[in-house]
Write a protein that binds this DNA or RNA. Sequence first.
DNA 1: TATGAATGAGTATTCATTCAT
DNA 2: AATGAATGAATACTCATTCAT
Lengths: 220, 220, 220, 220
Amino acid sequence: MDFSHSLLYQQPMSDQSVNARPSKQVRHDELIAAAFSLFIERGFAATRLEDVAHLAGVAKGTVVVHFPTKEALFTAVVLEHVTPTVQRAEALRDAPGSPRERIVGLLRFIHGSLQDPHVGGIPKLIVSEVGNFPELARGFHEQVCDRSRCAMTDLINQGIAAGEFRVVDAALAARLVLDSLIMHAIWRHSLGRYEPEAVDSHAFLETHLDIFLRGIAAEV
Amino acid sequence: MDFSHSLLYQQPMSDQSVNARPSKQVRHDELIAAAFSLFIERGFAATRLEDVAHLAGVAKGTVVVHFPTKEALFTAVVLEHVTPTVQRAEALRDAPGSPRERIVGLLRFIHGSLQDPHVGGIPKLIVSEVGNFPELARGFHEQVCDRSRCAMTDLINQGIAAGEFRVVDAALAARLVLDSLIMHAIWRHSLGRYEPEAVDSHAFLETHLDIFLRGIAAEV
Amino acid sequence: MDFSHSLLYQQPMSDQSVNARPSKQVRHDELIAAAFSLFIERGFAATRLEDVAHLAGVAKGTVVVHFPTKEALFTAVVLEHVTPTVQRAEALRDAPGSPRERIVGLLRFIHGSLQDPHVGGIPKLIVSEVGNFPELARGFHEQVCDRSRCAMTDLINQGIAAGEFRVVDAALAARLVLDSLIMHAIWRHSLGRYEPEAVDSHAFLETHLDIFLRGIAAEV
Amino acid sequence: MDFSHSLLYQQPMSDQSVNARPSKQVRHDELIAAAFSLFIERGFAATRLEDVAHLAGVAKGTVVVHFPTKEALFTAVVLEHVTPTVQRAEALRDAPGSPRERIVGLLRFIHGSLQDPHVGGIPKLIVSEVGNFPELARGFHEQVCDRSRCAMTDLINQGIAAGEFRVVDAALAARLVLDSLIMHAIWRHSLGRYEPEAVDSHAFLETHLDIFLRGIAAEV
DNA sequence: TATGAATGAGTATTCATTCAT
DNA sequence: AATGAATGAATACTCATTCAT
């Protein structure tokens, strides 16, 4: 499974004429968007292709024209939402600044990305459906999880080496600090819907950074 | 939705005769166990009642005798696996010891419980299926999430009052520290399967405790 | 199919002891009564044996002990409700009095019998289920329909011969006059339930007798 | 429940091409026809959707495309067969001629309609199944029973007012005269099958008219 | 004799996929 | 390319009947 190219943005479109039938690309994107929100909301099995079609404003048969099977649609949905984000995430590891500054930057970026409804629903989707899509799971794990964790582990190790942080298991620490963000995103798309008042995402991140960074800070 | 009593462990059975038909309670538990493992493995939709019956060693119709619908079976599975754990968790809040000691005790208990395959699969199941079971969701949120978070928030606030911890938003901190444990359990039942080497759960918890407690410790 | 003996009233019962288990005959009758009302209300297919058991105040298995199959129960229900009535009906044909008087007597008797809930539901039951019980149908037709119509036809012919009535097709006239009564009974157990105010059965019969007898009366 | 428009006869179709797939309307009518004959023959419960599909020459799933549930199919069957007849019946009340002539016309029309296998089976179906379809029952009662009886009651009252008929309870008389026709139709679709020789329907109607009209005729 | 748990054949319904228009 | 009618495999659920207690 190749996550390194996006199916989005492929074919720069004209689409000038007002009453023209929407181009294939536009239809494609509309279907992806509709499918994404339904997959997130109901899961793969409980999402009917007819509902996807309805939400996208087309007929049932049209979905099949664009995606040969339901599983192909699901795969496309995941790929298109994941790829752009991953690419931008890795760039941040190599930005200038102290390890601590770059950790803050990376976490802020990831947290910010997960606020975007087009990205924040992905972890819930992956966690829920991964059991029935082994290939997709493997790809996601290698290209997304591994790479984000590596980036974070690298930064922590750099901080330890620089004496900014005390000696901790950098891999576990990276996992811990990222898990909270991901769990937060998953929460918002599952049980969080039943919470009387929404969590303040900004305060959540700041508290997280505060506690974590103090927790790994070098002793005075 | 009443989560306050467990249907498990009710009626200590004799069941001496060798060829005797298992009592209704025994059948009930066998079905719950079979359904649990299949729901965890495949999710709600992909689990066929026939498979549940087969795994429990009974005929298809027997499942229906015990649980009128597939949803009722699902609800029963969740309730029976969750209720005892929550009750014991709350008891630990009121145990003797300093706030810090009780936090450690509570987190060790929760983490330990989540290692039990009979409990650790629940969070992933809830996250995945909760969208299609609003009633179950509400009950789970109130009886499980709220109560665990309250217990942890209370302990952090006690520690702040006692001067053991510095001033932080206790509710957010409680959420953060618990989320990591839950995310870890979810992970092990989803993408964790594709990880080349399993995470050392013991080291994970110790690192978590170490960083978190140092992160909220009062300034020297 | 033999309609000439009733399964009711067979075994004169003692049943003295207060707390004793009800005798087999009593159970039998309770089940027949429960089954009758449910068959009438819902039809054969939509009546579950479990409901019959529940209405009779026994467990599901008990029904099977008394009636080996659902069809046997149905047959028993029909036989027991039909047999006594038919026997009494035939006796009236040979009563003393003018043909006209005997016609009035017979119609009053039949109409009165059909007011009894234990009898009035039978025609609806027969009409509804006859298609799936050919043997029962044949027996009912021969023993009940044929015999009642013959009795009525005889009386009309006697009246024609005596010059009381004008010459009409006695068989058709008999059918006509009886059909109205039967239809009335069927009505009360089917669509009649949806009528805002119930029909006055007494007035119905009197109007029927009035119009019919004047309709076949000899010209002055 | 709206009985006031027929789904039949709506859209006169060309359907020229030989191998063309039949239009939705044609399929609809084929399914209604197939379902009707099976419902009449076996009743609602004993009719399998698969048999309906088979008789209509389509696959099982096609039935569901046209009628979401078995009950919807049943309702449609009743409505489409009944509505046109009632409408034409009411028109006859307001036709020219003496009350007596119009009564004869109306009864001939109703009797004739009930000879049509597409209509004559309905009363038996209604009587048998109405208990499990309260909504259909109410609609049928209001739109069919009430309206036919009103028409007949009106005519009898007109005859009484004109001095053609003697004073009788017109509502009961209307019920009586119609019941015989309906009972006759029910009979033919139930126990009538077990009669050695079929009743002569023409003679039946003439005898009925003869006796009834003489029965309510004004005294000389 | 009465019970009710267990059975499994039967059936309505769902829905991804196909294909003629 | 888009449509939506048709298909049929898959599956939850029903319920008469069996049988161990």
